[in-house]
């Protein structure tokens, strides 16, 4: 892949950052953890970008790294706050969601967070309308396994959302 400037990379992340936030919402509990994880994913994407060959879609490549970091590469803050120099000044661009809709989204996030980490990745990809073939390639499980697991995940989510999310 041709070299990319920091400016171009930031523009690219800017257009896809919602997806990274969704990963953070599924793997981090608190706002601070989400912020930490978001920063870690963006930083690793930047470091790995020279290895992006463009064979897969940018979003597929991004999912893989983001989920890899969220699942195995990242440890929750326990010893020291990271990126403390970056102040919390989110912009809330275009986030005029209605309260009941917001509650629905948060309940869905909470329900998904109660699933095992691998299942969270599978359901996230499915919700993003990623085909089973790509889910299998991204996760490393077979397509058949992905389908079977999705059935179970759907049942679990239904139960969690029907009987309430902790």
């Amino acid at each position: 892949m041709a070299e990319i400037s920091e400016k171009e990379f930031v523009a690219l992340i800017n257009t896809h950052q919602r997806m990274v936030h969704k990963v953070c919402n599924l793997y981090a509990e608190t706002a601070d953890e989400r912020k930490d994880l978001f920063q870690e994913i963006v930083l690793q994407l930047w470091r790995a970008y020279p290895t992006f060959r463009g064979e897969a879609k940018f979003s597929t490549w991004m999912y893989r790294i983001a989920l890899n970091i969220a699942i195995s590469g990242w440890r929750r803050a326990s010893r020291r706050p990271a990126f403390e120099e970056i102040k919390d000044r989110h912009l809330n661009v275009g986030m005029n969601t209605e309260p009941d809709k917001e509650e629905q989204i948060q309940n869905l996030y909470k329900a998904i967070r109660q699933l095992p980490e691998v299942d969270r990745a599978i359901i996230m990809l499915a919700l993003e309308e990623v085909p089973y073939e790509e889910i299998a390639t991204t996760t490393g499980i077979t397509q058949n396994n992905a389908r079977v697991r999705m059935l179970r995940i759907r049942e679990k989510l239904k139960k969690l959302l029907t009987y309430g999310v902790r």
Binding site: N14, H21, H90, N92, V93, M95, T97, Y109
Partner: peptide
């Protein structure tokens, strides 16, 4: 649906 926890940076 967009969520407030998906703050744009």
């Amino acid at each position: 649906q967009p969520s407030v926890t998906e703050n744009s940076w």
